[in-house]
Amino acid sequence: MERISGGSPTILPSQRRRRRFALAGLAPLVLWQLVFFVVPLLILLVISFWTMRNYRLEPGFSLENYRAVFADPALWRSLVLSLETAFFVTLACALLGYPVAYFIAKKAGRFRIVLLIAVIAPFWISIVMRISAWRILLGENGVINQALISLGLTSEPLGGLLYSPVSTAIGLVYAYLPLYVLPLYAAIDRIQDSWIDAAKDLNAGPVRAFLEVTLPLSLPGLVVGAVFCFIFGLGEFVTPALLGGGKQLLIAQIIQDEFQRRQDWPGGAAIAMVLLAIVFTLLLLSMRYLRIASGERP
């Protein structure tokens, strides 16, 4: 056996043997993801250039679908609405989540782990169950309306709670808040108390110390949480479909509509590709912060 060279990450004796191990370990997953992730996306990409004639897919290369996407004002409106919704949900999650993440990381003492897990746990409950609960809560005769009436805060049920942008936003914030708290917690947890102490020692008041030390050092967490929140919010389908009522369609609903009701696969695929382009642009722009948050040195 060769000697294990000190300091290098080598753990197996020979170069060739090592390469064979690496290949054998990676191949199944990589092949799987190629077949079931990359290939479907490529198919969608290809279909987006095809055309639809008499409800049959016709291969070819046409930019017509993309032209149609950019020419349709209704589509633009739902794209803008989707972006707005995702932005609002992201902002709300950041504002709601930051104090909680800070509390868990810096003030909760020995309850830290329990509280952190308690934040994340609802995220693992099936989306359809969470949404059915919100329908019970928000409906015209729902729990919140009935509670408000019995408290005398309102005489008539608030009709706008369910099937409105409000309920979509509540559902989305509910779905993604845990997702946002997690990276925020990780970032704030990494901030040493002595850094904050040092700022105060050098005459920074509590607010100044927060702005100068805590906030910039938690920026990676803020950005990463925001990116995921925004991306997921942008592509969400179930929540707006069941809570939004369908008056104003979000982009994901339009895509689903194209595929399933109008059977226009190329048209739907083209919109999906536009959505993907937005998602990947966002990911690329935030790559630096993603790497910092995943533990690499800044």
Binding site: Q192, S194, W195, A198, A199, D201, N203, G205, P216
Partner: peptide
């Protein structure tokens, strides 16, 4: 009185240098 109202300055056991600031920015902080 809170630390930021006292005329003291501390060299911390682990230095507590701000990792997101340069050497000069650290010194300039106070």
């Amino acid at each position: 009185l809170p630390p930021y109202r006292r005329d003291t300055a501390m060299v911390f056991q682990d230095y507590a240098l701000f990792p997101h600031r340069t050497v000069a920015q650290n010194i300039a902080f106070g």
